[in-house]
Write a protein that binds this DNA or RNA. Structure first.
Lengths: 253, 253
DNA sequence: TTACAGAATAATGTATACAAAATTAAGCTC
DNA sequence: GAGCTTAATTTTGTATACATTATTCTGTAA
């Protein structure tokens, strides 16, 4: 689709596994425990299922998507399967190479850090737009999520913390009320989603994140758009640096 | 989806023409003067051709894309044509409705204004990244484009002005050196590209734009990222307001 | 004429068959 | 065994036929 755009890499050979991350290359093969798919608009359902599997890691990054194998797994013909794969390519989850088929997209360290820069810009805009238009009710909701998030932090429950953290950011985008902005964020998120399953935050970084969230609440209460935008940009920059450090700590291939 | 995403609108009926713009609804029909397309990876070539035609307005916004008609026009079968249409849907140029086919995407006033907000955020980030890393040679290039742009302004040549204007912004994105950022911009641009063919800037707005471009050069020379980012955000906000005024002036349907 | 029901038509969705390209395997030379 | 050429296989790309869903047309009744 590009992201926009259909992502046809023109590399001569099969895409290599990503350099810095321990992702591996594999053939699809027959996938077991696949529920059968109903008739009509199959491709839509296939897209959903494949996306879920890719995001969840059931199909490894870099794995080649053999149409025939996938068709047998899902018990559908190649026509809807091809359409589904191309739709995923448009989302950036899959990379197509003409006459050489599709691979699950891999992500490099550079791409991850690029993503956080872009997300920062998008979140900053969301903050600018959201702060002036937030209602008291919406503010109360966010305060509630914030308190729940603090509880999860106190309980040292990182996964629970992430859930409420995500809810707060989602809420800000909702309040910003810009469909395109939400869509752009979704696209960028898709690229880094697998990372969220594995990257762990360090304790001191966690403290910083909490502090930035406190500031966000203040800016929202003040309906200060530029301020909230600035905080969010800084917040995402912190995350980016965190991720960069985390990546450095990884043994990696 | 989404841009990313495949844009399956779940509306019950045919998409209606956009409310505020005088776009019309039409059936595709046989298109004349279509050059034949070579074998293999047809869908890639079809995508390019269709995109060009849509962006150029040869196929009207809101027009239904009848697979059969298009296949006859391009002398290909439905398989590659369907893949091409779906690829365009992923780009957001086309809207799919399950079992009811594809229409060229229409754009509403709201969507246009949303787009400029997002472009502003992206350009702002590009400026922040580009300023600290620009080389003297790159700066000279931009100065050259800037001078050419001023000449076109002096000659009252708006189209020429837009070309150099676009070149300068493109150059900043190139220097920013963030592939995802460029891709995001491309996606958003796709949504508003048809507008560029018709919207005309007013004289006083033109003066403001020139002044902002002067400031951009200064910030680049100072390698001041935050400053350039701020200028670009303001610059795009000016454009957004311009477009909003231009839209208000339109009779519209 | 309008409103509705059902048939006829046309469009999209899917499966299969064939063509072209890429990959793999085999055979050959050195 | 390494390196190359060429045949066999696999995989992707395209065309066509059939199935399902929408739409349009037609006829009837009020």
């Amino acid at each position: 689709m590009g992201l926009g755009w259909i992502n046809f890499a023109m590399h001569k050979m099969r895409p290599k596994p990503a350099r810095h991350l321990a992702f591996f290359y594999a053939r699809t093969g027959f996938l077991h425990n696949i529920k059968p798919i109903e008739r009509q608009t199959l491709h839509l359902k296939i897209v959903d299922r494949l996306r879920e599997m890719i995001e969840h890691g059931d199909i490894a990054p870099g794995a080649k998507l053999i149409e025939k194998d996938l068709c047998e797994s899902f018990a559908v013909s190649r026509t809807p399967m091809r359409e589904a794969i191309r739709a995923l390519a448009a989302e950036g989850l899959v990379v197509l190479t003409p006459n050489r088929g599709a691979c699950v997209a891999t992500i490099t360290e550079v791409q991850i850090l690029e993503s956080f820069l872009v997300i920062g810009a998008l979140e900053g805009l969301a903050g600018e737009l959201a702060a002036p238009r937030i209602t008291e009710a919406q503010l109360d909701d966010i305060r509630g999520m914030h308190i729940s998030m603090l509880e999860r932090h106190a309980a040292n429950d990182l996964d629970g913390y992430y859930i409420y953290n995500r809810q707060i950011h989602d809420a800000i985008f909702e309040i910003a009320d810009n469909e395109l902005l939400k869509e752009m964020r979704r696209i960028v998120f898709n690229r880094t989603i697998r990372l969220r399953f594995i990257a762990r935050i360090a304790d001191d970084e966690w403290q910083v994140a909490i502090k930035e969230h406190e500031e966000m609440i203040v800016a929202l209460e003040a309906r200060d758009g530029p301020q909230l935008g600035a905080i969010l940009r800084r917040h995402l920059e912190s995350k980016r640096v965190q991720i960069a450090r985390w990546l450095q700590r990884q043994p990696s291939a």
